[in-house]
Design a protein around this nucleic acid. Structure first.
Lengths: 158, 158
DNA sequence: GGTAAATCCATAAGCAACTTATATCAGCGC
DNA sequence: GCGCTGATATAAGTTGCTTATGGATTTACC
């Protein structure tokens, strides 16, 4: 497969990218909403699994939600037995949240389910499309990074 | 830039694709929630603009939400003056929803804002990344199509 | 070292955007 | 003209956020 060797910002199909991204977003969203872990729940569990026990405020900042939202999310996860709260002996204001074994298991199960589903789908794409997808991953991650950097400052669409 | 010439399903980095897609989804979502049109609202307006007046049930099916959800969404959009309801003279059970001029304007404004924001972001990617993104668009659209085809049948993750 | 300010978390109230279950009303077959 | 189906509406409940505020504890300043 060949790519255009240069794609300037001028002739970039901005509208197409936007609508493709939105369609994809809505699908991922709808598929996620089927009674399993929400996107934010899963992301929070993943963060806890990767970074270890964290304070509520840090989690909220990391996942891009307000602190009350994270308090509620942690409460829900705690009720489900997926995380636990513990006081910090050094600073008794802070709550340290850590993932439980059940939480790790739920995270692993979710990852497995998603990987399976995606693998099945990918099998139905052509070679070229798979390759294109892999090649675009760095760009997608760059976009994500740019977006999350810009977000707090200027509130802009997309 | 060179791509791997073959990427089999076996060695495809499924986990990376999944997490990249989810990060991107959460960002698009959060950026969308800032008081403008919701994703579904915008999609509905776009459908109305493209396909003309439609019945509620058809709209609901097209956007993948339940009929009551669409009734409520249309009511909200109507209150905002972006759509209007009209009875069908031939079949007085049906309501035909059509977009208003204000609706078209809102849709255009949203598109412009998103295109601008995206253009700005894309300017900060490298040439290679932009090219990779363009090249991946067909694959992303194929994925979207596969997902929306499969969804009603098997309720699966991602 | 005692009060003021700042920081961390929780609670309250409200909202958006869904869901399921049910009601209403129009058309249609027999 | 009765009953079924089909199109929409209404009701009630849920999830996952939001802003505003309060209580507890640490930090900083005089």
């Amino acid at each position: 497969m060949d790519l255009p060797t240069t794609v300037s910002t001028r002739d970039f199909p901005v509208t197409e990218v936007t609508s493709s991204l939105e369609r994809l977003t809505r699908l991922v969203l709808r598929l996620t909403t089927q009674g399993e872990l929400s996107l934010t729940s899963a992301a929070t569990l993943a963060t806890l699994s990767r970074s270890g026990p964290s304070r509520l405020t840090d989690l909220a900042a990391h996942e891009g939600v307000t602190q009350p939202a994270m308090t509620q999310l942690v409460s829900r996860l705690q009720e489900a037995g997926l995380v636990a709260r513990a006081g910090d002996p050094d600073d008794r204001r802070v709550v340290r949240v850590h993932i439980t074994e059940a939480g790790e298991a739920a995270l692993a199960a979710r990852r497995r389910a998603r990987a399976d589903a995606l693998t099945r789908l990918l099998g139905r794409l052509g070679e070229a499309e798979r390759a294109a997808l892999v090649a675009a991953l760095p760009a997608i991650d760059s976009l994500t990074r740019l977006l999350s950097d810009e977000r707090p400052a200027t509130q802009h669409a997309l």
